[in-house]
């Protein structure tokens, strides 16, 4: 990445503060990892035991031994990928419309979309549930994916990004006789790849970690997502008798998403610029 002042070095005091902050940041995660590597029996009544060996992978083995876990993993992947793909398509189209085209009620409609940022999802979840019951969409992939597609942030984000692309590009293409859709598809969209990857990561993350909607919509265990399935398999009072297993599940559920971050790290930071345009 291009640093603005790569030549000057951090003063030692700043370094010390940074490292302290990083330690504070990491300590809980290391703690979780250690707990997940201990046998449940050893942690009973004494979570401090995690600071010393012996460590074991038995908790992870138990996760893989449960055939449902793989099914839930697959469901989570389908729902998250489906939601991500849907959001990219819808938000790009809408963002192009709002940012670069003029049409009646454009401003009012954009404000209507921004309104959505203020709607607490808990406020609409019950009417939403009733609606999906009427449509017969519960316990299905569309039922899990559709509510994820309406987040206004994607549209807001893509609109901001596309606004920054010089108008002259469209005008030149128009002179060549290209249709609006061709311009969108061939000219503008390729320029938004970094923003697409950012939005994809945001959406994927949010969808992967979503809890309430899948909890009340996917009520048959073969449709559970990983979050709901893991919650269902936690026994009552598991915090004392099955702490290691619980933490292993926590680590297991976070790994795929962490990998996504590692892979896209550079694109994310680069494309954040889209949301933070001057």
């Amino acid at each position: 990445m291009a640093a603005s002042r790569s030549d000057d070095r951090l003063p030692p005091l700043v370094w010390a503060a940074l490292l302290t902050a990083a330690a504070l940041m990491v300590a809980p995660l290391v703690w979780t990892l250690l707990l997940s590597l201990k046998s449940n029996a050893e942690l009973v009544g004494n979570s401090g035991a995690a600071l010393g060996g012996p460590y074991t992978l038995e908790n992870y083995g138990a996760i893989f031994g449960n055939s449902s876990t793989m099914r839930w993993l697959l469901n989570s992947a389908i729902v998250s990928l489906g939601t991500t793909a849907g959001v990219l398509v819808l938000a790009s189209l809408a963002g192009y419309g709002f940012a670069r085209l003029d049409f009646p009620f454009r401003r009012s409609l954009f404000v209507l979309v921004l309104l959505g940022l203020a709607i607490p999802s808990q406020a609409v979840i019950l009417p939403q549930h009733q609606l999906f019951a009427t449509l017969g969409l519960h316990n299905s992939y569309p039922g899990l994916i559709l509510p994820g597609l309406i987040g206004p942030f994607g549209v807001f984000f893509m609109t901001q990004y596309m606004r920054a692309i010089p108008k002259e590009l469209d005008e030149a293409a128009m002179l060549d006789g290209a249709s609006r859709f061709t311009i969108f598809w061939r000219v503008i969209l390729p320029l938004t790849i970094p923003a697409q990857s950012t939005l994809a990561v945001f959406t994927f993350l949010g969808s992967w970690n979503d809890y309430w909607w899948p909890l009340i919509s996917a009520t048959r265990s073969d449709m559970y997502t990983l979050t709901v399935g893991l919650a269902a398999s936690q026994m009552n009072y598991a915090q004392t008798s099955g702490l290691g297993f619980l933490m292993a599940q926590a680590v297991f559920a976070s790994i795929p998403i962490f990998i996504v971050y590692i892979i896209f790290q550079k694109q994310i930071v680069r494309a954040m610029a889209g949301a933070a345009l001057k």
């Binding site: 819808l90 938000a91 419309g97 049409f103 454009r106 709607i119 609409v124 559709l146 969108f184």
Partner: peptide, 26 residues
């Protein structure tokens, strides 16, 4: 002039159905 609406329509329709309608019903 109306073409722009086509681009925002897919999102808006879902948005109205799944977010605004439940909001009004609430």
């Amino acid at each position: 002039r109306w073409q722009g609406l086509l681009f925002v329509a897919p999102f808006l329709l879902l948005y109205l159905l799944i977010l605004i309608y439940p909001l009004l019903r609430g």
